[in-house]
Amino acid sequence: MRWIWAAVAATAPLLASPVAASAPLNATASTAAQRPDHVVVVVMENKRYDAVIGHRRTPYITALARRGANFTAAYGETHPSQPNYLALFSGSTQGVTDNACIRHPFDAPNLGRQLLDAGLTFTGYAEALPSTGFTGCSAGTYVRRHNPWVDFADVPADLNRPLRDLPSRWGQLPTVAFVVPDLCHDMHNCPKADADRWMRQTLGSYADWAESHNSLLILTFDEDNGTDGNHIPTLVLGAGVRPGDRTQRVDHYAVLRTIEDAYGLPPLGAAAQATPLPLS
Rank of each mutant, 00 (worst) to 15 (best):
W5L: 11
K47E: 12
N99A: 10
D224R: 02
R145K: 15
L64S: 06
N160V: 06
A73M: 12
W209D: 12
Y49P: 07
A6Q: 15
P13I: 10
A207K: 07
T175Y: 05
E260T: 06
V180W: 09
V250M: 03
R103Q: 07
F71R: 04
A12R: 09
A23Q: 11
T202S: 15
N214W: 00
T121G: 05
V43C: 08
A7H: 07
T258D: 04
R242S: 03
N230C: 01
N84V: 10
T72I: 01
P80G: 03
D151Q: 09
A195F: 04
G238M: 01
P105F: 06
A27G: 03
E77V: 15
G91D: 08
E260I: 11
A63K: 14
A262G: 03
T141R: 14
A195M: 10
P162N: 03
P105H: 04
M1Y: 15
T11G: 05
G68M: 09
T31H: 13
L277N: 02
D186T: 06
N99Q: 05
L14T: 15
S212F: 03
T11F: 10
F134S: 07
T62D: 09
T227F: 12
A157S: 04
L115C: 03
G269K: 02
H213L: 09
G91I: 07
V41Q: 07
Q34C: 08
S212I: 00
V42E: 02
N230W: 01
Y206P: 00
W198A: 10
E223P: 04
N214A: 14
D245C: 04
R103W: 04
Y60V: 08
N147T: 14
P130Q: 06
P167I: 03
E211Y: 00
N70D: 08
T58S: 13
T202P: 02
H104T: 06
G76Q: 08
R164V: 11
P83C: 01
T247Q: 13
P59N: 08
G95W: 02
N70R: 09
A63G: 00
D154Q: 13
N189M: 09
G112W: 07
A157Y: 03
